[in-house]
Design a protein around this nucleic acid. Structure first.
Lengths: 119, 119
DNA sequence: ATTTATATGTATTTTGTTTTCATATGATAA
DNA sequence: TTATCATATGAAAACAAAATACATATAAAT
């Protein structure tokens, strides 16, 4: 989880191990969010600008911008400026392969998790 | 994120799409936790029983058992009974490959996340 | 029967997220 | 150049989740 390479790089920048755990919490915390999961699910179909996401989710613009800021900060999405629009898309190199594994895990564990919750 | 296969399986069990988002929240939420991340990091070195984990973390036994229960419920760890001890280990098939990708992502994004937080 | 190892249920405190509002910025069109 | 459209940002209020602590339960081993 916290590899030697990450430790080394982060220490060079003046961050300690406890702070690195904090970064992991921010990373996973970004995915523990109903609205953000819905944005990710929406972006699976391709890039969308903010207004399209707002419409797709039926949410407020400011709320969506906040969520996108967090997704971007964690490297899950990339943004491209296109005239007056800002298009967001899933980061091909990080979240896409991650999602494949998560899907595989969830197809095995989703029902177990849901059953345990119902009790 | 929520694939057709997962949707189908879960519907068969009487769960709807909103509940599946809930399962994802439980899944990722399990990793948004300082003590649980430390347990995972500890188990990287090999299986450990509860007392060893308690000692390794300097935490209370009841707290550790609670964390382990959640990790197990989400399929991140497996447990083996060995006489009067209970050994926990990372689930080879799920979290181990997941961690490889997460490490790759974090080595690229960790510092960016930490810098953004410091502001 | 007692000790050791671990689990579970519940309450409290603490921490983090979501939402909302007000406002800022930057591009484009009139 | 000003009005408008698209989006971002900051801060506060409301809400939700996690961490901790405590009491107690269970099951194996001595």
């Amino acid at each position: 989880m916290i590899t030697k390479a990450i430790l080394k790089d982060c220490r060079k920048e003046g961050f300690d191990e406890e702070e690195i755990y904090g970064a992991y919490k921010i990373f996973f915390g970004t995915l523990v969010s109903h609205p953000r999961l819905r944005i990710i699910n929406l972006l699976r179909k391709g890039r969308k600008n903010v207004s399209e996401i707002v419409e797709g989710l039926g949410a407020k613009q400011t709320a969506v911008s906040h969520e996108l800021a967090r997704l971007k900060r964690c490297g899950f999405v990339d943004m491209e400026v296109d005239k007056k629009f800002r298009y967001y898309k899933l980061n091909e190199k990080t979240i896409k392969p991650l999602m494949g594994l998560i899907d595989a895990h969830m197809s095995k564990n989703c029902i177990r998790i849901l059953r345990a919750e119902k009790k």
